[in-house]
Design a protein around this nucleic acid. Structure first.
Length: 643
RNA sequence: GGGCCCGUAGCUCAGCAAGGAUAGAGCGGCGGCCUUCUAAGCCGCAGGUCGGGGGUUCAAGUCCCCCCGGGCCCGCCA
């Protein structure tokens, strides 16, 4: 295969050469490619802290140790190396011009880093399960974060050569959907209007209000309960303004008992309730897919929780757990016996980060439940499946039914424990727990507003996109050089870019403090900034309008240009890092840094009409455009021609 | 009570995985730059006990221990 990662190859070969030299003096090889770093303040140097690491072992000063090791290095053994010199405790390497030449050429074609898998993950067929929001109300920003992270991660995996299948688990078998179905039954004659997920979201909220307010009515003396009651009242009144008839039909008429009964019948496949559940779930899903599609997010399959039950995957999972001997029953309630598993199985202990001694001690103290609940329930005592049960069955389906080598579950961090329980169950069913990986992300917090799906109070993804789009339109109108169609197209793309960037650019494990200002800030460190930088590159290429066939890369000798070329060359490493650490935000950060460098270059150096420099600079711009374009594709930030 | 996570500039965040050469961005503040390949940009200034304290190391924002502050989880909810 062609070398799609010149910088990576250089680093690998540098580290290997140094390790060889170490072996020559009787020392263990200790350097890895990632230890090689740029030498600050230089335009063409990479270094390894060889002397520092080995001074003690060799009984020399760091600078002497570096010099000694450097003596046995041969430049010609190292890819793209032109010169090697010890500097203090480091060994530095001057890279050859051909490195930049190769980087630029690969970047221009959009192939830099393509198909390069990290050494730690040599799989082929993988699944990403993401979003999987309950189909009962519109997607809000939290769900959006899930979708954007999952989608970006899928794109990154695909680019790196994995065969990726993307699935959405439609959770249609829980009490939340049953509540919405119960509400729909009361208002069966109302015709849905507007966007379906929004409309059914109101039904869902009213069904909740019925149950909750009845519960609260009996204890209104309590201050807390009173406040909660008034909160519900506020929600109801808000809905009344939009759908007075719906409120009259549903409010006070849905009970928890009938809801539980409905769920029971649905899970059994009762033909009478099936169409109602399906109408709710399918309608809301239709709304979801509309919004997600707008953001460029698509799925290879929607997997219905109900089908997992009806097609026997839940039973199959049960059978496997029964056979392995870790299943327990209390009447119709079924659980996985994690106490037994923790005592007996090393693979299960590993999932919970416990040693055999620790488990024994906890069991003796009787405090195991504090760390890991001993029983992991899969069904309720009425025999209906809990989401945990269908989750275990779903894992089995992923492994056996779809046949993936690994599935990344993009699920909120608050579900960390449940995900460990599921992975333990996977291990007990006889598979490596590593087949199921939790890609955890934190919640999105609203400042100055408490979000609640049940109270129909949320910032929806639709709101966010529309708001962003309106702002883009306003900016475009002030520029006054675009046709109506252009304004429409550009504003949609830029809005998507702004929203996606805002949701993906923060490390997944950090809580996002959502603020409108932040998402609608289109300056540096934003989706629009990246899109804008891209159009600037296109502008140059458009104006130049001739193909670069030959250029002298040594004419790109300024610090800035070198910086930019090194940055471009780092792209494959960034992609690998994003995969290994499940951090698509690394790509967004990279794109941002790349653009900052490019904009500085853009302001400082003329390209078109720069005489002898023109071909080389054009090659650089083309490479930038190539690698930025790919980065944007990986993040789902639409490419914009002009803006 | 137990477990996991977060704490870096006024605010929002990178950098920690894999210790290394002056701790970086954006927003906000102040001051500049559009007859030029798009100013959604660029340049400059101000702003930091990297939560606190110990330790390991030639070297600690990064590793270890303790503490403080915040979040999440510990349901036959999802």
């Amino acid at each position: 295969m062609l070398d799609m990662d010149p910088v990576g190859s250089l680093k690998k070969s540098f580290a290997t050469a140094v390790n060889e030299a170490l072996r020559g003096v009787g020392l263990e090889p200790i350097f890895k490619p990632f230890h090689v770093s740029r030498v600050p303040k230089t335009t063409d140097m990479l270094g390894l802290p060889v002397g520092f690491k080995l001074a003690k072992k060799l009984g020399l000063r760091p600078d002497e140790a570096s010099r000694k090791v450097a003596e046995s290095l041969k430049v010609e053994d190292i890819l793209y190396a032109e010169e090697i010199k010890p500097v203090g405790g480091y060994i530095n390497l001057k890279v050859s011009e051909s490195l930049f030449k190769d980087v630029l050429s690969l970047a221009s074609s959009g192939n830099l880093g393509r198909g390069v898998k990290p050494d730690s993950l040599k799989l082929n067929f993988v699944m990403v399960e993401h979003t999987s929001v309950n189909p009962v109300h519109p997607l809000h920003v939290g769900g959006g974060r899930n979708a954007v992270i999952g989608d970006s991660y899928s794109r990154i995996l695909r680019f790196s050569g994995y065969n990726v299948t993307v699935h959405y688990l439609v959770n249609d078998c829980n009490l939340q959907v049953a509540l919405a179905a119960a509400g729909r039954i009361k208002a069966r004659n109302l015709k849905p209007k507007g966007k379906l997920d929004h409309w059914f979201g109101l039904i869902y909220a009213l069904a909740n209000a019925s149950v909750e307010m009845k519960e609260l009515e009996s204890k209104l003396d309590d201050k807390e309960a009173r406040r909660e009651y008034e909160d519900w009242l506020e929600a109801v009144n808000r809905i009344r303004e939009k759908e007075p008839e719906m409120v009259d039909l549903i409010l006070g008429k849905v009970s928890l008992e009938e809801t539980a009964e409905l769920l029971k019948r649905y899970q059994r496949g009762d033909e009478e309730v099936k169409p109602i559940f399906r109408e709710v779930a399918e309608s809301v899903m239709e709304g979801f897919l509309q919004t997600l599609g707008r953001m460029g997010i698509r799925y290879d399959s929607l997997d219905w929780e109900s089908e997992l039950i009806w097609r026997g995957w839940t039973e199959k999972a049960l059978k496997k757990l029964e056979e392995s001997g870790y299943l327990g029953r209390e009447g119709k309630a079924i659980y996985v016996d994690l106490r037994k598993a923790l005592l007996e199985r090393d693979d299960v202990r590993k999932i919970f980060g416990l040693s055999e001694e620790q488990v024994k001690e906890l069991v003796e103290e009787g405090s195991l439940d504090q760390v890991v609940p001993q029983k992991f329930y899969l069904t309720r005592s009425d025999g209906t499946w809990l989401y945990t049960g269908t989750d275990v069955a779903y894992s089995l389906y992923k492994i056996e039914g779809v046949g993936v080598e690994r599935c990344y579950n993009v699920i909120a961090t608050e579900q960390t424990l449940e995900q460990k329980q599921v992975r333990a169950s996977v291990a007990l069913m006889g598979y490596s727990a590593d087949k199921i990986v939790h890609l955890a992300y934190e919640m999105v917090n609203l400042v100055g507003m408490r979000m609640s799906g049940r109270k129909a109070r949320y910032v929806t993804l639709d709101d966010l996109l529309d708001e962003a789009k309106a702002k883009v339109k306003e900016i475009l109108s002030n520029r006054g050089e675009f046709s109506e169609e252009e304004v429409e197209e550009i504003s949609e793309k830029v809005a998507v870019g702004a929203v996606r960037y805002a949701l993906v650019s923060v490390s997944p494990i950090k809580v996002i403090q959502f603020s409108w200002d932040r998402v609608l800030d289109f300056e540096s460190n934003s989706g629009p900034f990246i899109q804008y930088s891209y159009t600037r590159a296109l502008g140059i290429l458009r104006k130049a309008s001739k193909e670069v066939v030959k250029y002298d890369v040594s004419l790109l000798s300024s610090e800035l240009e070198r910086e930019l070329m090194f940055k471009i060359g780092e792209f494959p490493e960034v992609v690998r890092g994003a995969i290994e650490f499940m951090r698509p935000d690394l790509v967004s950060q990279y794109a941002n840094e790349l653009c900052m460098l490019f904009n500085r270059f853009y302001e400082r150096y003329k390209v078109v009409g720069s005489g002898e420099y023109e071909p080389a600079r054009l090659a650089l711009v083309k490479a930038f455009k190539g690698v930025l374009g790919v980065s944007m594709d990986l993040l789902g930030i639409p490419r914009v021609e002009k803006m």
